[in-house]
């Protein structure tokens, strides 16, 4: 059974590229563009890895991260942001992000990080 990846990203072209890359690697990918639905989606899908943008409609990625990490079996989270200052990285780490990457990222780095988080 392939590992499930939830991409929480409101930019459709970024989400589409990530889906294509991860599907090529055998992941089962779902895209969610609305921050308000992200936690519910992650729980429903029982996502193995969540790729999470910081700036989203209706809900901040940091708030989503905080909620995701209250679950007993919280999925590992790869945090993506266009603002890569040390404070953001610090906050993401405090809230439990497993990996933090800044946009623009390299495809190889994202794929490699997701594989590592999924344990493949």
């Amino acid at each position: 059974m392939s590992h499930r990846v939830l991409i929480v990203e409101d930019e459709p072209n970024i989400a589409d590229a990530l889906r294509f890359l991860l599907t090529l690697e055998g992941f089962d990918v779902t895209i969610e563009g609305d921050g308000a639905n992200a936690v519910h989606q992650a729980e429903t899908l029982r996502a193995d890895v969540v790729i999470l943008d910081v700036m989203l409609p209706n809900r901040s990625g940091f708030d989503i991260l905080r909620d995701l990490n209250t679950a007993p079996a919280a999925p590992p989270v790869l945090m993506l942001t266009a603002k890569g200052q040390a404070r953001d990285r610090e906050m993401a780490q405090q809230l439990g992000a497993t990996v933090f990457m800044t946009k623009p990222f390299s495809n190889a780095d994202v794929v490699s990080a997701v594989k590592r988080l999924a344990g493949t």
Binding site: E11, I14, L21, L24, M55, A82, K103, P104, F105, N107
Partner: peptide, 28 residues
């Protein structure tokens, strides 16, 4: 600035796929 970085990310990621993946389906 956030919007610019998002546009650049989409372009960079897509360009990376087009230059490294040989058989992208035609609709994609």
């Amino acid at each position: 600035v956030h919007a610019m970085l998002s546009h650049i990310t989409a372009i960079r990621s897509t360009a990376g796929i087009l230059s490294t993946v040989p058989d992208v389906p035609s609709d994609q």
